[in-house]
Amino acid sequence: MSPTADEIVRSAAHWIDRGIRMDTRTFAHELGISRSTLFRRVGNREDLLGEALWYLADHTMAAAVRTWERTEGSAVRDADGELRCLAVMREYRSAIAGNKGFRRFLDEEPTVAIRILTDPHGRVQPRVMAAHVDLLRRDVEDGGFVPAVSLESLCYAIVRLGEAFLYSDVLASRAPDLGAASTLLAALVEGRVPTTPL
């Protein structure tokens, strides 16, 4: 049976996760479909990569939320006072930075990767922004914090700053510093610098 668009995207995400370069001819052959069928179902190579990267990002965020819930339940802050959304975002960034397949994609195709990941009208960044809005909205509604600006504006700053640190090796030839990113993002969200480094 011919794979659905969702099944194609999941398979592409697994290729990225395993560090396999996305060659659409080989990929389509493995799925048992033609390249034209692949294109009709999911678009061109960059469309497919965008959908696959969003799939990975979405599942990584969901896993970070589950980690919090396993250790902290429904609490808005942990015993050290760290806000739930900040802990989830830290876990999310750490998991992405530690994904060897994703890092290989960034290393081997930096221009394509950054274009797909940071396009404000693309398949990844708008969804990542929306996921962050949902994450922070939950903490606002549960009384965790009061944002100084709209959640949309705050999440725009969070995602863009997170990208600058997460992809700093590609964007600015600097090693990613996730600790600095967490400290700065906490200052953005809470309006103060944490007393202990995150």
Rank of each mutant, 00 (worst) to 15 (best):
C85G: 05
Y55T: 00
V112R: 15
Y92T: 09
L117R: 10
T60I: 01
Q125L: 08
G81R: 00
R70G: 12
G101R: 00
F39G: 03
T37H: 03
T26L: 14
W68I: 04
L53A: 07
R123Y: 03
F105M: 08
A28D: 01
R70E: 12
G144P: 00
E91R: 00
V140R: 11
F39E: 04
A87E: 15
D134S: 08
V88H: 02
R41T: 12
I96E: 00
E69Q: 15
M89L: 13
N44S: 11
K100W: 03
I33P: 01
L31T: 11
L135T: 04
T24P: 00
T71E: 05
G101P: 09
G32H: 15
E108C: 07
L136D: 02
G50C: 07
V140K: 05
R123V: 12
R35C: 01
L136R: 10
I33K: 12
N99Q: 04
L136K: 15
P110H: 10
A79P: 03
G81N: 01
V76F: 00
S94I: 13
A130K: 09
G101M: 02
S74M: 07
A62W: 01
E91Y: 10
S94Q: 06
I33N: 13
L136V: 08
W54Q: 03
V140I: 05
N99M: 05
Q125R: 13
V146K: 04
M22L: 13
D139C: 09
R90P: 06
D134N: 09
D107M: 02
A75Y: 03
E46Y: 10
A64T: 07
R103N: 14
R66T: 11
D80E: 11
V65C: 06
N44T: 11
A113R: 12
M129G: 00
V128P: 00
M129W: 12
E46H: 05
L117K: 13
D142A: 15
S74L: 09
Y55Q: 06
L38F: 00
R77P: 09
R35L: 02
F27R: 02
R103W: 11
D58V: 08
D134V: 01
A64M: 03
D80K: 14
E51N: 15
A95K: 00
V124M: 03
I33V: 13
T71G: 08
H121P: 13
T67A: 11
L56A: 10
P110K: 08
